[in-house]
Design a binder for these strands. Structure first.
Lengths: 213, 213
DNA sequence: AATCATCACTATGTATACACTCGAGCTATG
DNA sequence: CATAGCTCGAGTGTATACATAGTGATGATT
């Protein structure tokens, strides 16, 4: 693995996990010493992060971790809804029903995954990730997939902030199941509606958690 | 201006203007000699281009200019429609009517711009660009704006390929005028419809031109 | 004759040294 | 006392030298 990839992954993790808080200044020399690589790969990593919007160049003062404001959350979800509503509709038209049927039944059993001892809820989030991947694959549009991937990074960071409680995760699993069911049924309009409902509730939850801080 | 910015702009121009054809290999040393800078800024420029999708890393063999296939055009327009239809609706809800009213009347006079001696149609494309910027500003959503900017680069490259004829440009101006009018009138549904019509015709025209090659 | 292994070359990946720009803080002057 | 200019410094921007990996060709072997 290339040093620049390791530097990128490491910094990305640190930002997503809130170990590097918004406003934190990432100086090239400082980070290169911390990560044990030279400035060159660190520089490339910072460039990638800035392109993704996780950091912004602060002219001559290094790059700083971007802020997560209420407005930015609203804006992010506006784009997210635009893309995912369309994605759900396209998946309903083009996807393999069997794939989404299987995901649907798995999502209905999601409460089992959440009851287990698993602080990170890894199995649950893996399952949700599988739904995302299945939708990406069903659409088979690299531009659309790239656009959705680029917002998922920000969503993970916000999710960490929201500290999802069990009740919300149970409800979210049911909403995901409804989306999978609509896609499996080949019903674009229903898939759109289920996605709109899910995103609306998700946004409400996230904003409430954000304001609580 | 930084050397890496110049290298980036120069390479981007070369790709968009089809001086660098799809499949062309961009070796770092070769380009650094051609552009008169060292490998470092060239490397950064190539990284940015690859992130945008204008080039792809071809492991060990340098980066190559991405191909423009019929399928990729379809995919690009699918994302474009998703974003711009939503953008038009939001602009109709949030925009200043006066701004779009002015653009509407200017677009109706577009044929004057096209009749002049101007092989590049710069004044015409400037006007269309102003409409794009006005929509971006009206929406005031940086994520959405970024997503739309990222596809415009590819559109310009495709446009060069299409070799727009006067007839198509006259029709396109009228379609743009219709979009501006709908936004000025604060009618989201109409703005969506006008955008769908415009993008459908634009895609048909581009694909015909692409197949002619 | 075909296929596999090896070798050399080429191009990228990384480290480091140097140049330059932008800011902050201090000093001198009105 | 306030403000403008200067100096110093930290940090990025660029160049170059070195390490490394991947690829293509060439030769030998089956």
């Amino acid at each position: 693995m290339r040093a620049s990839d390791r530097a990128y992954s490491s910094l990305r993790e640190d930002i997503i996990e809130w170990r590097l808080r918004p406003g934190a200044v990432l100086a090239e020399v400082e980070q290169s010493e911390r990560l044990g690589v030279s400035r060159t790969p660190v520089r490339e990593a910072l460039g990638r992060l800035t392109a993704e919007g996780l950091t912004t160049a602060a002219g001559g003062r290094g790059v700083v971790v971007t802020d997560v404001s209420l407005e930015s959350i609203d804006e992010l979800f506006e784009l997210r809804e635009t893309l995912e509503v369309r994605a759900a509709a396209l998946a309903a038209q083009r996807g393999e029903p069997a794939v989404f049927s299987e995901l649907h039944s798995q999502l209905l059993r999601a409460p089992e995954l959440l009851s287990e001892e698993d602080p990170g809820r890894h199995k649950y989030y893996d399952l949700v990730g599988q739904l995302d991947e299945a939708i990406d694959a069903a659409i088979s549009n690299s531009y659309l997939a790239t656009a959705m991937r680029s917002i998922r990074v920000h969503l993970v960071r916000i999710r960490r902030l929201a500290a999802d409680d069990a009740a919300r995760l149970h409800a979210a699993a049911a909403e995901h199941a409804a989306i999978a069911e609509a896609i499996a049924g080949g019903n674009p309009r229903l898939a759109e509606a289920a996605t709109i409902v899910h995103l609306h509730r998700s946004l409400t939850h996230v904003k409430a958690a954000h304001q609580a801080r």
